[in-house]
């Protein structure tokens, strides 16, 4: 339920940001984390940043989801599988 992945903000314009999530670049809303800006790390769930995290925590979480568990290979899933709820 509700998997959220850490991503780094590369660009932003108002409440919309482009983030780097593994090999993928995606558009997310910053409406719930208005203080986050370019260079910051956020947890992304269903196209929305839900929490700002430190880079150390983001890297640790990324290691957990890629090495131990929750994603087989980020960016390697089918388009339908990538869009899972939560």
């Amino acid at each position: 339920m509700c998997l959220a992945l850490p991503a780094k903000i590369e660009d932003c314009l108002d409440e919309i940001a482009w983030v780097r999530l593994g090999d993928a670049r995606m558009k997310v809303s910053l409406v719930m984390t208005p203080e986050a800006g370019v260079g910051d790390w956020v947890l992304v769930h269903a196209g929305f940043a839900i929490h700002q995290v430190t880079e150390d925590d983001a890297r640790e979480t990324w290691m957990i989801v890629t090495e131990h568990g929750l994603m087989e290979k980020p960016g390697a899933t089918s388009p339908d599988q990538k869009a899972e709820t939560a």
């Binding site: 509700c2 769930h45 269903a46 929305f48 709820t85 939560a86």
Partner: peptide
């Protein structure tokens, strides 16, 4: 719109 509290704010937005 399915999901728990984590997903509901996205629907609201």
């Amino acid at each position: 719109a399915v999901g728990f509290e984590t997903t509901a704010p996205a629907t609201a937005s």
